[in-house]
Every structure is written in structure tokens, then in C-alpha cells.
Amino acid sequence: MAGRVLIADDEPNIVVSIEFLMRQKGYETHVARDGEEALAAVESFRPDLVLLDVNMPRRDGFEVCQKLRADGWTDLKIVMLTAKGRDIEIEKGLALGADAYVTKPFSTRELVARVAALLGDGS
């Protein structure tokens, strides 16, 4: 069963790659380039899952995650993506309400599998 995935990242090349992967799986995608755009996009696009980069301009991923959860988006799945992989960052993300945390560079297969699992896709 397909779903809607919001991709929030400021690196265009990474966005291209993730978009390709998600579309290939049949998900509907939308892109946000910074934190503010991401919040707005959640409102308008109503995704089922957000792939959230931490290092974004104008609001970083932690802030977005925290706000989403505070605003009541509890069913929304949030997967955090970051090049910083320290334990403390992971804990912080999970504590803020992220459902998963993926470090870059990621394995495409792993990413796709994660998304599928979270969206209840059996494939």
C-alpha cells in the first residue's frame, strides 16, 4: 500500500537520490528545503512519513520533530537523517519523538526497508 513521503533536506543531490528511491517504491513524494518549509509541507501535503534531515537551515531537524510532536502529529512517522552519528544525537532524536534515526551515508536498501516497515508495507 503506497503512502505519502515528505523529504526534508537541504542537499539537492541527496534529495534527488531519495526521491528516486521513494518514487520507485510507489510513494508519493514532496520536497522541503529547510525547516520552515518542512513544517508548512506537513500541513499542506499531509504525509504519512517524513524523512527529516537534521542539518537544515532555518530550523534544524530536532526542532521540527519536536514541534511536530508538540502540535499533535503523533501518528506521523518521522525518520531522522543525519551525517552526525554520535550516540547523543541519536538519543536526542529518539527522545524528541523520532521513530527512527538513519545515519548518512545510508544504504539505499536499508532506507527503503525502514520506510516500508514504518508504513506497514509488507514488501
Partner: peptide, 25 residues
């Protein structure tokens, strides 16, 4: 260190991703 790590990993991310895509498709 943290920043350099991040900066290094970012290009690597897309390099890996596209390499995998090309391989799988």
C-alpha cells in the same frame, strides 16, 4: 571534528546512494 565529519559524509551520502541506484536499476 563534528563539522568536518558532517561535511565529508554529505557528499559521500549521495555518492553511495546513486552508486547503489545505478547498480540496482
Amino acid at each position: 571534528v563534528s563539522t568536518v565529519t558532517h561535511e565529508l559524509r554529505t557528499p559521500l551520502t549521495s555518492m553511495r546512494a546513486f552508486a547503489e541506484i545505478l547498480l540496482d536499476n
